[in-house]
């Protein structure tokens, strides 16, 4: 962890236009929750749709993608990463610092709004609000690590990330049940399910599978990102 790298990363995240998009995501979730609360007779019935499908299924991966790639891919793309790399700093420090910022931002902008939205919809009933927030915490961390790796590994990180989150998890996962086993969203739901009162949250992956997979993805992505960053080349423009 390096304080200067963290400071530069935070300012880079908030200083760019994508910073506005970061606020749109939680605002949208809260807006939908408020509308549901005001209009539905039993808003708690909408929890699975608003918190599970919209929140964890769509908004969380989009937010994590913007944050995870935004903390490093933009610097690699425009070449300013040189100023971090041309320093006697171990590469894994840079990666872990940027990942810490990405996770913190994802938690702040996704898990906190998720908790508020959950409380708006269900109050404290069945522990649903806390469960979804906890699911968002673990899934948000795994998404951040994966998307940060994509940001280091490919120049098309956003496309690759969207491909995973929207095509694999949402589209393929909808039609091919087996695909859900390899879905961060489902792992997060599995954690949420284990926390809430039985029967209030559904998930397709067992907790004993979800937790190890979450850990493996987060740790392996971080290690790979550090290795990739260590060997990052700047091809000549010639």
């Amino acid at each position: 962890m390096n304080v200067t790298v963290a400071r530069l990363t935070v300012r880079g995240l908030l200083g760019r236009r994508s910073g506005i998009l970061l606020l749109v995501v939680p605002a949208l979730l809260l807006l939908v929750a408020v509308i549901a609360r005001l209009t539905a007779d039993t808003p708690e019935d909408l929890a699975a749709t608003v918190l599970g499908r919209l929140g964890m299924g769509t908004l969380l991966p989009i937010l994590a993608l913007v944050v995870g790639t935004g903390v490093i891919a933009t610097e690699i793309e425009d070449g300013s990463i040189v100023y971090l790399l041309a320093k006697p700093l171990p590469r894994h420090w840079i990666v872990t610092t940027k990942l810490t910022v990405a996770i913190a931002a994802t938690w702040l902008l996704a898990a906190v709004p998720m908790l508020i939205a959950g409380l708006l919809l269900c109050g404290t009933r069945d522990g649903v609000a806390v469960a979804y927030a906890a699911g968002t915490l673990v899934a948000g961390a795994a998404y951040s690590a994966l998307f940060l790796l994509l940001g280091v590994a490919t120049r098309h990180a956003v496309v690759a990330g969207l491909g995973y989150a929207l095509v694999w998890e949402s589209l393929v996962g909808n039609f091919v049940p087996g695909a859900r086993t390899l879905s961060i969203q489902q792992w997060g739901l599995s954690v949420a399910k284990s926390i809430a009162v039985q029967g209030s949250i559904a998930a397709d992956v067992a907790l004993t599978v979800a937790v190890p997979l979450l850990v493996v993805v987060a740790v392996a992505s971080t290690l790979l990102a550090a290795v990739r960053l260590g060997g990052l080349t700047l091809a000549g423009e010639e």
Partner: peptide, 15 residues
């Protein structure tokens, strides 16, 4: 001519 490539190698950004 290869100047930038040489400088990238001298500065550790290209093996």
């Amino acid at each position: 001519a290869g100047k930038s490539t040489l400088i990238h190698m001298m500065s550790g950004f290209l093996p």
